[in-house]
Simulated scan of single mutants.
Amino acid sequence: MTKAGTTIVRRTRLSRDERRELFLDIAARIVVEHGVEALTMEGLAAEAGVSKALGYRYFTNRDDLLAALFERETRRYDQRIDERTSGLSSFDDRIRAMLETYLDTVTERGNVLTILMQARLGGGAFEQRRRERNRYVEDYFAALIHEEFGVPVPTALVASSVFLTGTLGLITAWLDRGLPRDEVTATFVELCSASLRGLASR
């Protein structure tokens, strides 16, 4: 206590890992609220209340920052997906679990992952990782489609790409139009399954 009776607040020094996570949290908030284009090293430092030089101790540049944020968000999402789909075998159950996990993530963390997945910023580490991620997800869903419905791989890849793009419409229906989450999820799963059965019967 001070002589005046007020409490002295001691600032806790953050570890390097904690500071890095704080920077990434701030970067995620900027991306959700203002878009990828608004994220700069200067803006990050200002939001964090630190010097610009401190940010460069953790990230080489804006591209490195975006790549690190993208890796963190996809890693967290994948961990949740693994937990949610453990023990599920049918296509419908797996797709529903993935969608629910995705919507949970949007609810809790904002739409940062979707924004990053859609961003196209030319060359650099972020763009390379974004493209690699999109290719990985498309291949993953195509493998599920091929295994469950017997659809040829080239056709399954087209269907996978279309369905993944369709998740953007799902987000719009849920967030922007305010449609019930259960209805949005059920409709999307039914559309996927019905169309894939049609492809399988060709």
Rank of each mutant, 00 (worst) to 15 (best):
K3E: 15
K3S: 14
V9W: 07
R10T: 13
T12Q: 15
T12L: 14
S15W: 01
S15E: 06
S15A: 09
R16W: 02
R16E: 10
E18F: 03
R20M: 07
R20Y: 11
I26R: 11
R29D: 11
I30P: 10
V31Q: 03
H34F: 13
H34E: 15
E37F: 00
A38H: 11
L39I: 06
L39P: 02
E42F: 10
A45D: 04
A45W: 04
E47D: 11
E47C: 11
A48N: 07
V50H: 08
K52E: 07
A53S: 15
G55Q: 01
R57V: 00
R57N: 15
Y58L: 12
F59C: 12
F59H: 06
N61F: 10
L66A: 12
L69A: 07
L69T: 08
L69S: 09
E71I: 01
R72S: 02
R75Q: 08
D78L: 05
R80G: 12
T85A: 11
G87F: 10
L88I: 00
I95F: 08
R96F: 02
A97V: 03
A97F: 04
M98N: 12
Y102D: 06
L103P: 01
D104Y: 09
D104G: 09
T105F: 14
T107Q: 14
E108S: 14
E108M: 09
R109Y: 12
G110L: 12
N111Q: 11
V112D: 01
L113Q: 09
T114L: 08
I115N: 02
A119Q: 13
A119N: 10
R120M: 01
G122A: 13
G123S: 15
G124K: 09
A125M: 03
F126R: 07
R131T: 00
R133H: 15
N134Q: 13
D139N: 12
D139Y: 01
F141K: 02
I145W: 03
I145L: 13
V151P: 08
P154D: 07
L157S: 09
T165V: 11
T167G: 01
L168M: 10
G169M: 09
L170M: 10
L175R: 08
G178K: 05
G178H: 01
D182R: 13
E183W: 09
V184W: 12
V184S: 06
A186Y: 03
V189K: 06
V189A: 02
V189R: 12
L191M: 14
A194G: 11
S195W: 10
L196M: 10
R197E: 05
G198T: 03
L199P: 05
A200L: 03
S201G: 04
R202H: 13
